[in-house]
Amino acid sequence: MSSFPARAVVDLSAIRANVRSLAAHAPTAQVMAVVKADAYGHGLLPVSRAALEAGATWLGVAQLGEALELRAAGITARVLTWLYAPGAPLDQAVAADVDLSVAAPWALDEVVASARAVGRTARVHLKVDTGLGRNGLTPDQLPAVLDAALRAQAEGAVQVVGLWSHLAFADEPDHPTVHAQAEVFAEALALVEGRGARLEVRHLANSAATLTAPALHYDLVRPGIAVYGLSPVPQLGGPADFGLTPAMTFEAQLVTVKPVPAGQGVSYAHAYVTPGETMLGVVPVGYADGVPRHASGSAQRPGGPLLVGGRRLSVAGRVCMDQVVVDLGPGAREREGDRVELFGTGASGGPTAQDWADVAGTISYEIVTRVGGRVPRVHVDPEHAEPVAAPQVEGAAR
């Protein structure tokens, strides 16, 4: 039993619905649900299973450990992992039939060595840096690495099954870099296939491109944030505009409600001072739990939004490590134990992760992913009518 006075409730039915909606946006492609970073903070295994139940045929993770955790849990769908350092235990990935990205010449050498060591063919996806300037083979490096990969394929050490890249400005669909990167990718694809590689999948589209750039869908799309019901292009439309529903609701309980006089400084450095007699409430989550300190509030700038008793209020004063304060107003009727919603679906005027992102000057991806590990994840599944792995929170919020 958890005694933590907050929780992140994850709706697995929303995850399934989002995956189905994304598949409808890309009807000619398979769907890889990107579940890196503990499924963007939503829970790796429950989300992965829900995504596969909804029709995703691939799972994508950044870290090798995440891929191995999926395999250890009995998940047999295709899994791609793409971020590892020299000396990583790639032999475990090869033995577990995990697809590996090759983004540098040294990586191919280590994949081949691992495949030989375990006596199993490694499935590799060559990653090309088409303009993001991050991980990936440069177009100049690609020919030599491709030739080496095809030699290793001839001996049975590897199989080149994919070519992929990542967009820098997919959240701005008309940005010239999108078209430029698409051209570089097409050139790389022509080279790879021209030299005899028989690819299973070619993939370039992330969430934003899945929703806005059908020409870039190829054989496989890789939605991440959209799987969780958040819009990758908020300037173009919110979740509902793309048939998505936010899956996470972050909620807590009031632990203190008390009257204070006018002129009461609130939280560290008294960035907020009560303008009149009022009631203050303490919400027991802070930056250690993922509440952005940049969402602190002052008299000049409202803090992060909160839904309390059906009223939309905001953080008053500095966000602390373990708590925030809300000015409930004079005559407030809320009491200790009452529910506070930090973000959720946005229904009934409640705040969303995007609202917090706007206040904190960041993106919704960071808001959901940074929810701290000590916050219990409660997975609910209205489609199946039974809670899934739902820990009880002592003094459950009302």
Rank of each mutant, 00 (worst) to 15 (best):
V285I: 12
L244K: 08
F250L: 15
R198T: 11
A168M: 04
L163Q: 03
N206G: 15
R195Y: 15
D171Q: 04
A190Q: 14
F169C: 05
P261A: 05
Y272V: 11
V266M: 11
S207N: 08
A252S: 08
H179G: 09
P239Y: 11
P259C: 01
L211I: 11
E187H: 13
A180F: 09
G243W: 14
A240G: 15
L220E: 03
G224W: 04
A180E: 14
G238S: 13
F185N: 03
A213S: 01
V282Q: 10
H179I: 02
E277K: 01
L220D: 00
L167G: 05
R195N: 15
K258H: 09
G194P: 14
H166K: 01
E172Q: 12
P284F: 07
L216W: 05
G243K: 15
L211P: 10
D171H: 09
Y228K: 09
R198D: 12
V192I: 13
A186W: 01
S231F: 04
G281Y: 04
V201C: 05
L216K: 01
L220G: 03
S207D: 05
Y228C: 08
L230Q: 09
A271W: 14
V161Y: 04
V178Y: 07
A215V: 06
E277Q: 04
V285T: 02
P261S: 00
